[in-house]
């Protein structure tokens, strides 16, 4: 666990990823579908080439698919892989179909319950989902115990499913606001992130706005996650692009569609996408400058404002 004292944690994205992501480690991914995926952080993980990763999440979408497509992922544990209207997560799907990617399937409630166990410091959590389904028939075959069905000690005869705690080595999330100490304000939906972050050994937070600690202390009830759970803070405007950030900008359907076309095509087309938009960019700003003009950014920000 990171130091509990209040020390500034603002670093560059390069430094944060180099310090907390390791080959062979487990990574919790924030966001959901086309909302608030930690794209900047994931681009940096790919540039640094940390391999053999285990990915945890509830819905895993474009950020996970990029990591799989870059050949960095060994195993995924989640509730879904997809991008809804934009189609499936093609690299993920191909990896499972050709046997190069190991998966453990849970429901979304089961996954968030696993993070809940992790954040509470207990070894497992009971759920009443999964019963009767093939989620309890099949497992990844990795030898790791997926679940245990027990008899409710207070109501003998009632089956209850226990799912194991998850404690990711590092989680990577993108949020609206954070202060230099690592206090986090998530605006809008928060998916599984509060549980996942508090369950993680380290968390890298990229944020749209870096705010003063004084602002946090004035409105402490707005703090979603307090600083003891956060290891690094990176000021990274547009860090979820092309997914949306509530109150800041809408998703960019054109860019998601472009990624999906490359991911569906695979092979050379996918390799070119990575070369052009990840490896060929020194930073996430480079990528943004390549694909999202100032006019486009204004449009996406205005589209979000119109919805609030």
């Amino acid at each position: 666990m990171q130091a509990l004292e209040a020390t500034p944690k603002v670093v560059s994205l390069k430094e944060a990823v180099a310090r907390f992501v390791r080959t062979g480690c487990s990574v919790g991914l924030g966001g959901q579908n086309i909302g608030r995926c930690a794209m900047a952080g994931i681009h940096e993980v790919i540039r640094q080439g940390h391999r053999d990763l285990t990915i945890y999440g509830c819905n895993l979408s474009i950020s996970m698919d990029l990591l799989v497509g870059a050949g960095l992922v060994r195993r995924c544990e989640s509730g879904t892989g997809n991008l809804e209207r934009f189609g499936t997560t093609f690299c993920w799907r191909r990896g499972i179909e050709n046997g190069t990617l190991e998966v453990e399937d849970y429901s979304h409630l089961a996954m968030v319950s696993r993070f809940l166990a992790g954040e509470m410091g207990v070894p497992f959590m009971p759920v009443k989902s999964l019963l009767g389904s093939d989620l309890l028939t099949y497992s990844s075959g990795s030898g790791l115990k997926k679940f245990q069905v027990i008899d409710n000690p207070w109501n003998p005869g009632e089956p209850v499913v226990l799912v194991p705690a998850v404690t990711p080595d590092v989680s990577i999330i993108h949020v609206q606001k954070a202060d230099p100490l690592g206090n986090v304000i998530i605006e809008g939906f928060a998916t599984h992130e509060p549980e996942m972050v508090r369950a993680s050994r380290h968390t890298i937070v990229t944020c749209e706005e870096l705010v003063e600690t004084d602002q946090i202390r004035r409105d402490p009830e707005r703090t979603t996650i307090p600083y003891p759970h956060v290891s690094a803070v990176v000021h990274q405007p547009w860090g979820a692009y092309p997914t949306s950030t509530y109150r800041y900008y809408d998703y960019d359907g054109d860019e998601i569609t472009r990624y999906q076309a490359a991911a569906r095509a695979s092979g050379g087309a996918y390799r070119r996408y990575l070369d052009d938009y990840v490896y060929g960019c020194a930073s996430f700003e480079d990528y943004l400058d390549k694909v999202c003009s100032p006019t486009r950014r204004e449009e996406l920000a205005a589209a979000m404002q119109a919805m609030l």
Partner: peptide, 13 residues
Amino acid sequence: RLPGSGGGNDIAS
């Protein structure tokens, strides 16, 4: 390979 359960198993349960 299809997307998986998501919240589907939880809803059906």
